[in-house]
């Protein structure tokens, strides 16, 4: 992506701040660009010591595809969970699943955990301290191995390609 420079230690964050500022002000006047640009330079400089190293996004296009896939899955997830909640017989098969991680970076693991929470029937509950397993609670699952395989194929593989290929 964009290489960091002395004035812009975190270019992606700066760009995000500028866009959010313009969206909040609901205008693209010159003054708003100047003020937003100033904030986008000042805020990252002040809070740089709090941040970890910025992850590198190797394939931005794949990330866009991933976001759309997750958005689609959120809708199906909600229909599934609604059906389970409204089912009067209440036949659920809850389970704790231990998911072995192959991702390494902190940021990709965070994205994977958030994705798991937002998509069908699973909530990520705990990341073990060794950073190797993720504890997942599933609302209704028949075959645990199939669930692990599904998460690996559907979400972890694309994230590996995006961040660590």
């Amino acid at each position: 992506m964009i290489p960091p420079t002395r004035w812009l230690p975190m270019p992606v964050l700066s760009l995000l701040l500028l866009v959010v500022w313009l969206m909040l002000q609901q205008s693209v006047a010159l003054g708003q660009w100047i003020l937003g640009g100033l904030l986008a330079i000042l805020i990252p400089m002040i809070c740089r010591p709090f941040w970890e190293r910025q992850p590198t996004i190797k394939r931005p296009l794949k990330l866009v595809g991933y976001v759309f896939r997750v958005l689609g899955d959120i809708v199906t997830a909600n229909l599934q969970v609604s059906k389970l909640i409204l089912d009067p017989r209440g036949r659920m098969r809850p389970a704790f699943v231990e998911y072995p991680l192959t991702l390494k970076g902190n940021f990709p693991i965070t994205i994977l955990a958030s994705t798991i929470t937002m998509t069908p029937g699973t909530v990520s509950a705990h990341l073990r301290l060794d950073g190797r397993t993720l504890l997942i609670h599933a609302l209704d699952v028949g075959d645990i191995n199939a669930l692990i395989d599904d998460i690996h194929q559907r979400y972890e593989r694309p994230l590996l390609e995006i961040f660590e290929s």
């Binding site: 959120i74 909600n78 609604s82 909640i85 937002m118 909530v123 609302l139």
Partner: peptide, 16 residues
């Protein structure tokens, strides 16, 4: 029935 199952409703459905 239990807390872990209750977590599913609000985290997904209410957000959407």
């Amino acid at each position: 029935k239990d807390f872990y199952m209750r977590l599913h409703g609000p985290s997904k459905t209410t957000t959407l």
